[in-house]
Design a binder for these strands. Structure first.
Lengths: 338, 338
DNA sequence: CGAAGAATCGAAATCGGTTTCGACAATGTT
DNA sequence: AACATTGTCGAAACCGATTTCGATTCTTCG
């Protein structure tokens, strides 16, 4: 079922059918109605490949998970912003294509693959350091939006939470509850996000006039639970513990809590914990995790709109920072509502 | 950068370049080498649209989340099998395209969209009842694989866990630990998976000679945590409680536990709980959740290989059932290792 | 040396659309 | 009635690849 068959059935030319499907004005209401009926009956849908070939627009957005392969769909935070992004992009008329990293030995020349699929734009999801192949894509003429990734290209933009504010809200909360000895669990050294949060954290500690003790700052290999567990083990074995800890992700916090439990240390009585992201599982744990909520839905929507603008207007990127909000639950000794 | 430019640079015809890229034999080693060098230098990658148009193969797999929209990426179980599926499909040379449901008023004539994008096959993810539009796709000539969804088409297949075995392992475990009064928390009535598990559960209860009390069988609206919470509330208010409950998903189980906690009922002392799926958060909760593990990675790999076979051989579908395994943690009163 | 056979290459049709531009008819204007 | 304008429509070029088939050159061998 292609456009030619529709044209024959309707007794018109191929061009006329095409015009009808693309809302050209130079076709009479009568023939338009007749053709549309036939399209309706046959369930005809034009080939995206042919359309892309002719128009050089694919209505496809490339989704790239940068960094280590295993982040992908399993990271609760990114998955939620991706979900929101997909929905919003859907109403704007775009579908999503996910690049597999496995096919190519070079494990992802993202620019080549973007032109290969003729994507109209890309969203790059990552909390890791910039890879050179991402940089190439960023610097190309293909519109790109980074999620938690600071893109700098002329046709690029990015969205992220205000990481400095995240940290200062954490310190403020600790401070108001009387905690003075503050620790930190971060991700690997090449994680921009983790570094930003750590930098903001130390700055906030100083501006509140609290003592800064680097021995209470530890790091895991990534943002996942087991890293938090190991980091906490390390801290416990060091012999000196802070009274409160900010973990750069909720999973790190949960891992830390698991380690504490194993050593019969109670949260928040012995040590208070605040996580970051507000992913679903926080609500189911004991104690329920106090955390900083990133507005994931809004991040996704913003990313979608920015990308849409980059594609369709000649607008020049920029960035959006969304405001974090403190979610008080139980892991921090305060007893407010969830 | 297209094939014509490569041809000009190499001083050969377009056809020759195409032949080189597709491993035809009628081209000399010398020119092949020369052309490949140019391709390497320029980073040329052929247009997928043009290629698809000419060959009618897109190397694209359509991913469909059937059922309510909000399942999408947020469901931990499906996300993990999808992750494994994506990886495996990647090494087989395919990329994934996600259909947005939002663009079309009909909210998804999946068959039309599959031909629109010229996908080579589809994977359909769902635990819900079959929708008519899915049925159309299933019955079409497009290869399809269902995940937790029983497809019947000539070019279709499906993968799922052995739901009867899941239930009987649960009952056996309860039985061996001395529980005799067994309850069940399921999803909505139109969920095939939930119904299968419930059917297997009642059958297992009977075959163990245990009493069957339908008052202890309750249902939520979906597989998520809040549904488990509400279902449990309902059960508690009914006045009569079983000694052990099997929940058709881990999130249902976690919701149930939350409700129990609010009524100062202890798990597993007052009531034992077993979940299903073995999603990540099970490990972080208190008590850690005893559950039935579905081998999500294997489900994804199987789905990928079956789909590949359906696409490339004329093989005729079929189904694969993977064996579930009981993961004993803390929510059931037994104290084995995790 | 000449002819048969093999190796190498390119012209052209094709895939399914879009878009420009010219042809023609219908209508309006004086 | 003659002309200009507007409204409808289709022929044909084009997008970037693949693939068939015929043309040409190169080997090989009697």
């Amino acid at each position: 079922m292609n456009i030619k068959m529709i044209a024959e059935m309707a007794g018109v030319s191929v061009s006329t059918v095409s015009k009808i499907m693309n809302n050209y004005s130079d076709v009479s209401e009568k023939t338009k109605k007749r053709v549309l009926e036939i399209i309706e009956q046959t369930g005809y849908s034009p080939s995206n490949s042919a359309k892309t070939l002719a128009t050089k627009k694919s209505n496809l957005i490339g989704v790239i998970f940068a960094g280590e392969l295993n982040v992908e769909f399993t990271h609760p935070f990114f998955v939620e912003v991706l979900n929101s992004f997909k929905k919003q992009m859907g109403v704007l008329g775009y579908d999503l294509i996910f690049f597999s990293n496995e096919k190519f030995i070079s494990s992802g020349d993202y620019f080549a693959r973007s032109v290969h699929f003729n994507v109209d734009g890309c969203v790059i999801i990552s909390g890791q350091k910039m890879e050179p192949t991402i940089r190439d894509l960023d610097m190309s003429s293909i519109p790109c939006i980074g999620v938690d990734l600071e893109l700098k290209g002329k046709k690029s933009g990015f969205v992220m939470s205000d990481n400095f504010q995240i940290s200062s809200k954490v310190v403020e909360h600790f401070y108001l509850l009387g905690y003075r000895e503050l620790g930190f669990i971060g991700s690997a050294a090449d994680s921009e996000i983790s570094n930003l949060r750590e930098a903001g954290y130390t700055k906030a500690i100083e501006s509140f006039g609290l003592p800064l003790n680097r021995r209470w700052f530890v790091h895991g290999d990534d943002f996942f639970e087991s890293s938090g567990y190991e980091a906490m083990q390390q801290l416990i074995q060091s012999g000196s513990l802070p009274k409160a800890i900010f973990a750069a992700s909720d999973l790190l916090a949960l891992g830390a809590i698991r380690a504490l439990k194993e050593h019969d240390l109670r949260v928040p009585e012995d040590i208070a914990i605040i996580g970051c992201d507000d992913i679903e599982p926080c609500k189911y744990t004991t104690p329920r995790l106090t955390t900083i909520r990133q507005n994931k839905e809004r991040l996704g929507i913003l990313a979608a709109h920015m990308l849409y603008d980059l594609i369709n207007n000649q607008s020049g990127g920029g960035s959006f920072v969304v405001e974090p909000v403190l979610i008080v639950r139980e892991s921090c000794g305060s007893q407010l509502k969830s």
